[in-house]
Design a protein around this nucleic acid. Sequence first.
DNA 1: AGAGTGTTCTGGATCGATACAGAGGAGCGG
DNA 2: CCGCTCCTCTGTATCGATCCAGAACACTCT
Lengths: 355, 355
Amino acid sequence: MRPTLRTVADAVGVSRSTVSNAYSRPDQLSPDLREKIFEAARRLGYAGPDPAARSLRRGRVGAIGVLFTASLSYAFTDPYAVQYLRGVAESAQREESGLLLVPQSLDDEATAVDAVRNAVVDGFAIFCMPDWHPSLDAIQARGLPAVSGQRRPGDGPGTMFVGIDEAAATRVAGEHLARLGHRRIAVVGDYLTADEVDGPVPVSKPDDVPYFSSRERVRGYHEAFTAAGIDWAGVTTINATVNSREAGAVAAAHALDRAPRPTAIAALSDVLALGVLDALAARGLRPGLDVSVLGFDDIPESATRSLTTVRQSAVERGRASGRLLLDPPQDPAGRQVVLPTELVVRASTAPASKE
Amino acid sequence: MRPTLRTVADAVGVSRSTVSNAYSRPDQLSPDLREKIFEAARRLGYAGPDPAARSLRRGRVGAIGVLFTASLSYAFTDPYAVQYLRGVAESAQREESGLLLVPQSLDDEATAVDAVRNAVVDGFAIFCMPDWHPSLDAIQARGLPAVSGQRRPGDGPGTMFVGIDEAAATRVAGEHLARLGHRRIAVVGDYLTADEVDGPVPVSKPDDVPYFSSRERVRGYHEAFTAAGIDWAGVTTINATVNSREAGAVAAAHALDRAPRPTAIAALSDVLALGVLDALAARGLRPGLDVSVLGFDDIPESATRSLTTVRQSAVERGRASGRLLLDPPQDPAGRQVVLPTELVVRASTAPASKE
DNA sequence: AGAGTGTTCTGGATCGATACAGAGGAGCGG
DNA sequence: CCGCTCCTCTGTATCGATCCAGAACACTCT
């Protein structure tokens, strides 16, 4: 039988409250008694108040939950995700909270929802989830504070926003491409469609894209191209099955292996863009000179590969999310944080060659 | 006022037990009533049993805690650590558990211990911690199952082991170097000493190294070299301040910038070894040809850099740790898992040049 | 009809702590 | 010596669920 507060209290001959105070409110009892209580606790093998019981009573757990679309292990593979986690971790650490990684398998929605329902946390940081996912409703239902990088119609007052203006970011990127004279352009992204298609998919208008950040990024390109007089119907949109370098290369192949080849490929993430670069290399094509390539995120490797990209700070996003969760501002305005983005031009984009 | 079981029970006109059963033991009540209860719950905005209360009563939380020496953000930077986390995550996911990252700042032991005491978890996976750290005692005290990669004298029956035979691994590596004819050798490692020294430190015998895995790895080299007739006193041991590529480069500089230069450098981790390679490159020295370099871990990047190293599977270690935690085997023998290691010889080690 | 077997639902005890109002005594100024 | 405050410590209610023994009732079998 494991010792509890009561065991120690009885041993010392004081009330349970006093033992509790010895641990949690030292100013409420004399130092002597406190020491005596600790002595007894040591002797009895009592390790201090049980966290589960304490969190029930206090109503605070000391942990924030992080949701990931993909299997947990993805979280540790994707550099952007890792940066984000770092940021959340920093904030959590400052408030003496832990980070609970909540597994969210996409195939098995029931399990995913259960994971949310059973998570012992004080709030949720939503890294990225499809808009329609029932876990998001489960979070709403729990009534805990939540921070998301995407706005949803059904969001309640507990849901806060930390993210970027996705469309504005790619609009700037699109204008950059247009200014360089590109007219035959392909856009590579994941979640362009609800099905797991590998290859070109028609996206007649951005609204058709079911997934928030892909949708907004496509919207930005759409706006930029249309404004520059580039016919959207001529833009090839290619779906990557997942957000990985390999999938990026496969997707790029669909664009590169047909005539006329596009003069520029815009990827919706750097990881995909790196894959595009791989595909170029495999065909002896030079980035910038033969085909311009544009990414999104500015992960560390992008600089070494001279990838033109849109910079956003994943760490900062994580940090802000954590901060908001652990201590939600009263002011509604403070609950909406829009972080800056910046187009970083490197060698992978260059003027379209005359043909 | 948030709704609870009671709110719903009163609304439907049944007992709380029944509502509880509706969620957790559907076979205990009629489908009709169950549906009626869910209906009422939806209407009242009840999101299901509160996880904190449930875990108190059930005695199971559905999360396992992972301890890290360094700040949480380190966990996401070190490739070996990331692989390990992936493994633990895989096991956890299979048992529908989450992963709680428990922050452990080394400077502030009191906070670290508190983090352990307050962690709402069913068990602890200890990635790596100095032997003497009070958090380890705190884990013991909590009486929860724990899995560690290092054996400690004070370990109780709840503590399980998943790791490798560290000394045997480096012994093989040391024999490899000796066979290649190396006689002037440097060993680069972190935690070779209790103080944060940057540079050569005397290690008269392996037992002096305060940190488990460094100690065992040094021991292996010590055994191999002594057996090959290499005087240990002639082996330079250099401390790196942390386990990072940069620190590895700095440490290697201490060995390379003095005469006579060692013909081989053995690093206690691949991350450090990559730093050693950087230091070589900065001086125009060729790995293998001018100075042989040996690592430990076999992280992905090692293959592309042709680094000779000792392979151990971080993922497998994590996976096994998770498995043991979530369902500890009765048999004491099953609580000790020794994973295989293998010397992977690549181009970074070669016969010592005659001078 | 009576005994036996399920199924469905109830009530109270319990998990291990914390919050809060207040009791008791010491010290102090008037 | 009274009234006051301050410091310690106590006792009970409470957090929100689950467990378990058993009640109530319908149903089958002899």
